[in-house]
C-alpha cells in the first residue's frame, strides 16, 4: 500500500549551501519504509511532485529523513517549509536496496547521491565502508552520520579541499586492494555509476545502483520516468519509480 499524507517536519536544518535536512514524523511510512526507497514531495504552487530519496529511517521514533538539494524553483519551495509545518508526501515508493545479512558493504555516494547511502550503510554499521565524493569541502555532507554508525568513512573531493584529493573510484580501488566486500551500493551521476559498476564487475562483486529520472506519478502508472535496462537479454525501458530506483547494476544500460 502507498501512503499519502501531510506530516509534520520535526527537525529542519541547512547542512550545506542549498542542501536541507528534514526529519518528518510519519509513523506508518517509517514502519513500511526500506533504505533506498523514495518519497514524492508536493511543492506548493507546482504541478508535479519532486522525488526525493529517503536518507534515513527511524522505525522506533516513527520518522524518516529527507536530505535534498535545491535544484530549481520547486525544491526551493519545499525548502521553505518551516519546522513544525506539514509536508505533503507519498511514500514509501519504489524498491529499496537488497541487504546481505552478515555481509560487508561499500556504500558510495556522489554529491547529492550521498543521502540514500546513510540508510543502507546504517544496516551494516561497522561492516560498511562509506565513500562519498563532492566537488569541494563546502558541500561535503553526512560524514558525521557515517562515522556515528561505525562505518569506515572515506571522503573524497575533486579539489582536495577535504579528505582525499580524487574521485570515489580511486578510493574504491584502494579499499578493494586491501579488503573484500559482498556488495557495493552506489548513487550519483551516471558517469560515476558506470565507473563503479566496471570496478565491481572486474572484482566480481555484486552492485546495486540507485537511478534518477524526471518523474510524473511516482507509482508506475504514467511511464514517464523511463530508463534503459536489460531484461532476459533484451533492452527495454523500465521505470525508475516502480522498477527502481534501485537496480541491479547488470540490468542497467549506461551511455544513453
Amino acid at each position: 500500500m502507498y501512503t499519502q499524507g501531510r506530516y509534520p517536519i520535526i527537525k529542519k536544518s541547512a547542512i550545506a549551501k542549498g542542501v536541507f535536512d528534514f526529519t518528518i514524523l510519519c509513523p506508518e511510512i517509517a514502519a513500511a519504509a526500506q533504505a533506498g526507497q523514495f518519497a514524492q514531495v508536493a511543492a506548493d504552487g507546482f504541478f508535479l511532485r519532486r522525488p526525493i530519496s529517503i536518507c534515513d529511517i527511524d522505525k522506533n521514533k516513527g520518522t524518516i529523513r529527507l536530505v535534498f538539494e535545491v535544484r530549481g524553483k520547486g525544491t526551493d519551495k519545499i525548502s521553505q517549509i518551516s519546522c513544525g509545518d506539514l509536508i505533503d508526501i507519498i511514500a514509501p515508493l519504489g524498491n529499496g536496496f537488497k541487504k546481505i545479512e552478515g555481509g560487508k558493504a561499500i556504500c558510495i555516494g556522489g554529491g547529492i547521491g550521498t543521502p540514500p547511502m546513510v540508510g543502507i550503510a546504517k544496516e551494516y554499521g561497522e561492516n560498511a565502508t562509506a565513500i562519498s565524493g563532492f566537488r569541494n569541502s563546502s558541500i561535503a555532507i553526512l560524514q558525521d552520520d557515517f562515522k556515528a554508525m561505525g562505518a569506515k568513512t572515506i571522503l573524497c573531493t575533486d579539489d582536495g579541499s577535504a579528505g582525499i584529493h580524487g574521485f570515489v573510484t580511486d578510493a574504491l580501488k584502494n579499499v578493494l586492494a586491501n579488503e573484500n566486500a559482498d556488495i557495493i551500493y552506489a548513487c550519483g551521476p551516471m558517469g560515476m555509476l558506470k565507473a563503479i559498476v566496471d570496478i565491481a564487475e572486474e572484482n566480481g562483486i555484486e552492485c546495486q545502483v540507485s537511478l534518477e529520472q524526471r518523474m510524473g506519478c511516482g507509482v508506475g502508472a504514467c511511464l514517464v520516468c523511463a530508463c534503459r535496462t536489460v531484461k532476459d537479454g533484451k533492452e527495454i525501458y523500465s521505470h525508475v519509480c516502480k522498477d527502481g530506483p534501485v537496480f541491479d547494476s547488470k540490468e542497467v544500460v549506461f551511455g544513453e
Partner: peptide, 13 residues
C-alpha cells in the same frame, strides 16, 4: 517501447 527519456517536463499548471 515508447520514446527515450526525459519524457516529462513541468509547465505552469
Amino acid at each position: 517501447e515508447g520514446n527515450p527519456p526525459p519524457r516529462v517536463a513541468e509547465t505552469p499548471s
